[in-house]
Every structure is written in C-alpha cells, then in structure tokens.
Amino acid sequence: MIKDTVTEDLLLRKPTFIAFLFATVLVCFLIFDPSQSLIGHLLEPALGDPDTSGLYGRFVTSFMLAVLMVLNLLAISLIPNFRLQVICVWIELLILFLSFFYSFDLSFEFIRSKIWFMVTQGIFTTLYVSAISIVIASFIAIIGAVAKMSSNGFAYAIASFYTSFFRGLPLLMQVYLIYLGFPQIGYVIDAVPAGIIALSLCYGAYMTEIFRAGIMSIDAGQWEGSRALGFKFSLIMRKIILPQSIPLIIPPTGNQFIAMLKDSSLVSVIGVWELMFLARTLGNKTFNHMEMLITAAMLYWMMTMVLELIQSRIERKYQKRQSR
C-alpha cells in the first residue's frame, strides 16, 4: 500500500468526536456497572462501600473511567513517534488482557512449579514437530506445484488428488488415520513421526496452492528469456522462477507456519508430549485446568510473536533487494 502524502485531520482533534466518544464510553460503562471494579474500590473513601453506593456510585465510577479513558487516548494521540505510539497501545492492551486473566484468581504458585517443564518439554516438542513439518511441507509443495502445472497426466492427477484429499479431510482425522491406519497394514508408527507425517501432508497440500500461485505470478517473459539462453527446466525453476516467487510466497507461508504451530496441538490426541498435551495432563491431578490452559495460551502466543518478528525481518530483506 502506498500512503498519500496528504493526511486527514486526526479524529481525536475534533471536539465533536471526543464528545461522542466520551458519551459512548460512559454509556457502555453505565450498562456494565463498574462500581465493583478496581476503580470502584479505589473510590471507596469518597463514595462509601460500592455495595451500598447505588446508582450514584455507579454513575460516578463510570464517569471517572470514561474521563480516564478519553484522556488516555488523547495522551497517546499526542505521541509524535509512530513506533512509540504502537508500543504504548500494545502495552495498554496487554495490561488489560493480563488483568482479565488475573481476575480468574489463578494459583501462580502452581504455574511457577510447572512452567519450566512446559517450556523445556512442551515448547521444544511443539517447535521441532512444526519446524520439521513445515520443511517437509515446503518440499512437497514445490513438487506438488510443479506437478499441478505439468502437462503430464499422471503428475497432474496425483497432485490434484493429493491436494483435494488432504485439504478435504479434517486434520484431526488425518492424524488418527495415520496413527491408527498404518498399524492396520502391519506398520506400527510412533506418535511423533505420525504427527509429523500428518502435519506435513496436510500443510503440504495447502502450500502446494501457495507455491503454485507464486510460480504462476512470474511473468512469462522470464521463462522465455531463460529458455532463449538455453536453460533447462530445473535450472529455470531453481535460479530464475523460485527466487522471484519467494517474496510472494513468504507471507502466506509464514501464516501457514503460525497456523501449524497451533494445529500441532492436535497431535496431542495421540499422546505426543507437546504444549497442549502437557497443559491438559499437568492441570488434571490438582484441578488447576485454568492455570495450565492460560499458561499454554500465553506460550503459544509468545512463539507466534517471535515467528511474526522473524517473518517481518525476512520480508524486509527481500523488499530491500527488490526495490533497489
């Protein structure tokens, strides 16, 4: 997207908008009665016990909250630096979220006692299962994409059957089919390889389409230019077409990797000790389900953020190369 050089006035500089915003926030707070909240308790000296302060207490707390919120927005809008602004909003949203979790009255003692194991065992397994799977899936995708564009009937038929089948079945079913199906034909397979095979095949099917689209988006002139020099097909693919499609393939592939990171929780059903499996089993004994689930959720999120960061790095590297 290309930004216009002329920008419109900030909405937060218009008094009517601020008034409208304030009114909306106030009404929302009035409906969701905040007098029992942290702010309500802070105002206790002035309003008396929130349980008894009634409609008046409800209105005053709502009013205070609305003022705070609008002031906060105005303050953030005054930050001149884009990055700083983004960071501030992120931190505030994060605090809101965490306080939401905090209100569950979790046993942090329990989390602390388990988190190390979740990281070393759970995250480790989740990461290596996903990483191996995405690499295999990428290989499948290149072959699948080439086969799907080929004029060879066999190649096309096999590739289209493959993508249709593995995109058509729920991943959970594929995991079961591979884990329980292989022993039927006399081939017992461990849980981890079964999980990796299922993830690779399923994501390979999706990524076949991503790679195909990436390859097709390269101008026909690149093929003609290379053929005219006497390049063979595999050389054209490796040196001319794929390097040019990579910048187009990376964003959707990053997306797939993030999705896979979380879909790998499905292989917990066959007993792979990845993050989700640990979250469920560790909490079971002492009924600390919520603690473990939220911890796992936070860990998934953190892994995703790291991946997003890596992805944006790679994208920037390729953008630089293209726009020189």
């Binding site: 002139g221 230019g225 005219a228 390097p243 040019q244």
Partner: peptide, 11 residues
C-alpha cells in the same frame, strides 16, 4: 534473442 520487454532477470 532480444525481446521487446528485455526480459532481464530482476533479482
């Protein structure tokens, strides 16, 4: 062969 649109390799 030289083409109307050059067909150089941009990368």
């Amino acid at each position: 062969m030289v083409f109307q649109h050059f067909n150089l390799f941009p990368h």
